[in-house]
């Protein structure tokens, strides 16, 4: 029998709840492959936010905790404090991580809490109908910026770069894009290994697609993603030379 899914996907809950062509599901697939490769199914505890990430509440064969909007990081950190041997992964949208939950993410980075945060940046508040997010790029049309995002709302927010400023040098902080699933897998592996081997904080932003709210077909979704890739920088954000954290 040919396998079409990672082994740790809960087959009984498929088809899942994400829209046709959703980037979240493609990213959750790479995460699944990584957990299969590293044989971590028994060790992982998965924490999800409010936003489309919540649609993953029954996605995998491992335990998943549904938190409040923006509060995924502290809940995951609390769990890690109680069970330091478990591999703790927080998963959220850009609204959850950079808007309502930014201070939670910043403080986890500042304290160098040994958890892995995966943030899916689809550049909008997808679950609530495609409103402008801090990550929405200039001039983009959303339901709350019908004539395009104006300068007064700021440029697209660069989260990993911001977090790097206060994070420990041991922390792994990077941005990848869903257009390159192999690179996503490599980055997720590195992030998880940072937690397990270095007992340090790791943060990975993954640029993603949202065909429903950006109203794109398969081709259009990836064209838009290319635009996002040229606006945001892809790669690891290394510690600054002068820092002594």
């Amino acid at each position: 029998m040919i396998e079409t899914m990672p082994k740790c996907w809960n087959q009984k809950t498929k088809p899942h709840f994400f829209c046709p062509g959703c980037g979240h599901a493609i990213i959750l697939k790479q995460l699944g492959f990584v957990i299969d490769d590293l044989k971590l199914e028994q060790e992982v505890k998965f924490f999800i936010d409010i936003g489309c990430s919540l649609l993953a509440w029954n996605f995998y064969n491992f335990d998943t905790v549904q938190t409040h909007h923006g509060r995924t990081t502290p809940t995951a950190v609390g769990y890690k404090m109680a069970k330091p041997k478990k591999v703790v992964i927080g998963y959220m949208g850009d609204g959850g991580g950079y808007a309502i939950g930014l201070q939670s993410v910043l403080h986890a980075a500042f304290r160098n809490d040994p958890v892995t945060i995966i943030l899916v940046n689809n550049e909008n508040y997808a679950m609530t109908g495609g409103q402008m997010a801090p990550t929405t790029m200039p001039n983009e049309i959303t339901t709350t910026t019908p004539t395009g995002k104006e300068v007064k709302f700021g440029p697209g927010m660069h989260g990993p770069e911001l977090i790097r400023n206060i994070a420990s040098d041991k922390a792994y902080i990077a941005r990848t894009s869903m257009s390159a699933p192999e690179a996503v897998k490599i980055a997720i592996k590195k992030a998880i290994k940072t937690q397990i081997e270095n007992n340090a904080f790791s943060f990975l932003e993954i640029l993603s697609i949202c065909p429903t709210n950006w109203k794109t077909d398969a081709e259009g979704s990836f064209e838009r993603l290319k635009m996002a890739e040229s606006y945001y920088h892809i790669g690891e954000i290394p510690p600054q030379k002068s820092s002594q954290k």
């Binding site: 040919i2 079409t4 996907w9 498929k14 192999e182």
Partner: peptide
């Protein structure tokens, strides 16, 4: 195709 398919609906081996 298998790597991308969001729904685990296609694969070739």
């Amino acid at each position: 195709c298998k790597r991308f398919c969001p729904d685990g609906a296609v694969a070739v081996e």
